[in-house]
Amino acid sequence: MFKELDPILHAPLRLAVISLLLSVKEAEFTFIKEKTNSTAGNLSVQISKLKEAAYIDVTKQFRNNYPLTICKITPKGVDAFENYVKALQSYMHLNN
């Protein structure tokens, strides 16, 4: 019996964001945008979805009068990612 893939994570941009945030302590919106090669609008939407699922924490600040968005993965996000990878592995074994 294989696990169902988490629909929140099983979308390219959201998975890219979570994978990136898993590897760092925190990252700015511009950094995520650059590394994922995404547009600001699309990224904002996906970040909001991850935030709604409580997979990431989003902090908004100002630096030199410019808005600054800092994202950080939550423990719930880490658990979700681990479960997602386990589910992926079970799919891969099934297909081999």
């Binding site: 893939l5 099983h10 979308a11 390219p12 941009l13 959201r14 998975l15 890219a16 994978s19 994922t36 090669n37 995404s38 699309n42 996906q46 990878v85 992926l88 799919y91 891969m92 297909n95």
Partner: peptide, 15 residues
């Protein structure tokens, strides 16, 4: 990256 579904192999590659 648009929000489309993708394969398990693509997922692992992306991670």
């Amino acid at each position: 990256m648009e929000e489309e579904k993708f394969s398990e192999k693509e997922s692992l590659k992306l991670i």
